[in-house]
């Protein structure tokens, strides 16, 4: 049984993704939920094609994986 002490031990339980792994997850989720690749979603997001659709669950589930690219400048 897991104890509270073990749970709070440093970074135990936190999984770190490399950038490549993160990109792979973005691509997989975009394909699963929207039927497009991760790079294509990134392009459409940057172009504002999802403006006003942030509340759509399938859009959010992919968009939040963009990290800093979520915030278009």
């Amino acid at each position: 049984m897991t104890t509270a002490h073990q749970l709070d031990a440093g970074n135990d339980g936190i999984r770190e993704y490399t950038c490549d792994e993160g990109e792979a997850l973005l691509d997989a989720r975009a394909r699963q939920l929207l039927g497009i690749s991760g790079p294509e979603f990134r392009r459409r997001w940057a172009a504002g094609e999802y403006d006003g659709q942030e509340e759509r669950d399938e859009v959010w589930q992919v968009a939040f994986l963009l990290g800093g690219a979520f915030k278009r400048t």
Binding site: T2, L7, G13, I14, R15, E16, Y17, T18, C19, E21, G22, L25, F64, L65, L66, G67, G68, A69, F70, K71, T73
Partner: peptide
């Protein structure tokens, strides 16, 4: 007791 997972991205900077 579930895991948290995160990723650092390089350009333009940020993480999820």
């Amino acid at each position: 007791d579930e895991w948290v997972r995160w990723q650092a991205t390089s350009d333009p900077g940020g993480a999820w």
